[in-house]
Design a protein around this nucleic acid. Sequence first.
DNA 1: CGAGGGGAGGTTTTT
DNA 2: CCTCCCCTCG
Length: 799
Amino acid sequence: MRRGRGYVAGMEPIDDSDNLPLSQRAIAARPAPYLEGLNAAQRAAVETLEGPVLMLAGAGTGKTRALTTRIAHLLMLGKARPGQILAVTFTNKAAREMKDRIAALLGETVEGMPWLGTFHSICVKILRRHAELIGNGELHLKPAFTILDTDDQIRLLKQLIQAENLDEKRWPARQLAHLIDGWKNRCLPPSNLPKREKAAFDGWGGRLYAAYQERLLSLNAVDFGDLLMHCVTLFQAHPDVLKSWQERFRYILVDEYQDTNVAQYMWLRLLAQAHRNICCVGDDDQSIYGWRGAEVGNILRFEQDFPGAQVVRLEQNYRSTPQILSAASGLIAANSGRLGKTLWTEAEAGEKVRLIGHWDSEAEARWIGEEIEAFQGGHRAGLGKVSLDDIAILVRASHQMRAFEDRFMTIGLPYRVIGGPRFYERAEIRDAMAYFRLVVSPADDLAFERIVNTPKRGLGDKALQTIQTVARRHGVPLLEAARIAVEEGQLTGKGLVNLRDFVAALGRWHADALDAGASHIELAERILDESGYTAMWQNDKSPDAPGRLDNLKELVKALEEFDNLQGFLEHVALVMDRDEGEAGEEVSIMTLHGAKGLEFPVVFLPGWEDGLFPNQRAMDENGTKGLEEERRLAYVGITRAERLAVISFAGNRRLYGQWQSSMPSRFIDELPEEHIEILTPPGLYGGGYGAAMAFAGANAGTDMHDRAAQADVYNSPGWKRMQARAAERKAPVRRAPVTIDTEAAAHFSVGDKVSHAKFGEGQIIGIAEDTLTVQFAAGFKTIKAAYVTPAGSDQDVPF
DNA sequence: CGAGGGGAGGTTTTT
DNA sequence: CCTCCCCTCG
């Protein structure tokens, strides 16, 4: 157990007294040390403990700090024991960070926060306790159920589609998987599926979905979507079970609420019903996962869903310069239906957001590479030396990464690509896991199918069919069927010998796994060696074989944290992260989605071209909604930058091998010019000012060597529009606070002093619609804006 | 069983 | 253009 720093003096040990009556007055009089340094809004977010709270936390406003301090506060006040707080995140990374920070605040590890985790991991914990209640009359889950990943899911669906004698080309399993995920995201089990939806997939949707769920049950398996859906249906069908969980969780905290889907929303609502102490943190402007079922509506509707909800807005930004914030705010202002926020900062104005166009994607990559080298050498004004670790390139689509990888490889610029294939998605890890699964659960047919012929044992389709026939005839799992097939001599030659050995080896390993005295780590190594799996990769001459062997070693190492294989398997499916090894200074390349929650001093945002960003397909499929989500993505991108953001676009880009010309992104037109610095094109093509660009419409796009076509600078409609607008507005630029407030109470801002007839003077800490949250001497109140008057503002909004 | 050709499809991504 | 998957042929 790790002892953290900063043990809080005078801290009461957390005991069974769940409700130490401590009024907010008392806290205000003697603030706990961990509350120091919080701004007024953050304090409100930390101290408004009872009832529903919506914490609207803009980018870089100290959301995680508020959230973790709130948990620490709950524990310190004795409002709840660690086991009575439910805190959910979307990613393991976020969960881990919260744990670490709470530990730092409290000066000890939070082994005692068993219910801080991802939606999925918490659902697993709950489901394992009630597995028997999940299922239909005959079949139900058992507590050791396995969690299938996307790959298993597809393979299973493929089998079902084949079983119906459907053409896999016309009925692709991937598409069905997508449909089923969608239904599960909306918490629609086969029995509740509307007729219209059942007819999806050419009429087979409902039927295949039901068959799939049935098959999962018989395999004692669930997929990711089931974790939430089963949990919700469990709660709905068993009020007593629900009640026990409702009572346990006195306080609920939810991170990234704008990303919740319907199932997660239902889950939260059910659990919050008893104590109603639910605090949801989110930012409607950063909702970028609509395409996988997230409903921005959840956060927009919060106040209706949870009547009496208090809304706290965190608007002071501690990350970016005013220039960056203003550019981002100006852009996102084009979206409709926002809750509205006014981000502000005390930071120095800083560098304007830079904008530059390039001839093509290769020139773009080349230029960014040169800029990075210049930054690194300290040859760029305003920033001094910048470490490679401080620089990120954020792209819309992963195929954009290649241009940068190619370029950086040639010039020897160290980089890392973040968000490649996950560790546990790699074939070798999945194979090894399948071995472990089959050893622990001999009835795991999916695992059997995966590895029976890996490495090659001469057991092809035909052998597998034979085994499957035997399995059906005897009604036994495949491994058992294999044993029978061997005994009955249904196979011949090499296959027979190999299968006999395979079955025998599994028997041995299984026995060893049951032996509590034996080391599960040694067993794992033995399984991989004796099965020939390690040898298979050792003999493989492909360049990635050594890497795969390393991964296997890492997998075995991960076993150390568990007592046995069983325990490992129960948790690992959800928690295995690939190690982001710090290997010296490197530029980070990642997608905009992957960058959410991160921050970098310098951020490059390439590929701002219509069709790529905003993405054509997003707009085609979801219209304005899709466009707005793309715009939020742009907002997320810009707000990752602490000191400098550089946006760029290319006139030509290779797409599916074809050179295609493109127009600058419409988002570029939406950037507020006063915060943008337009860089003159580099002198790469003919040199100096006025060189370099040709865009679509000039019909020269397809020939990148056509220098003549490059004569006219920025010859695009979008660019001209921008120039025209810049010319128009000479004098009366709206200066000072960039107030992008959609509220009726727009003449108030957070931080304003107001006075109220009854409560006296106070300071606004939150604004929602026409309702203000005001901190008075007597405490926090939520008041209609009409009932207060401005009492003079001493808070300068610094830009 | 495994290598190689043909054909389709090719945002974003966590669990 | 490039990758992945399926199918066929040796």
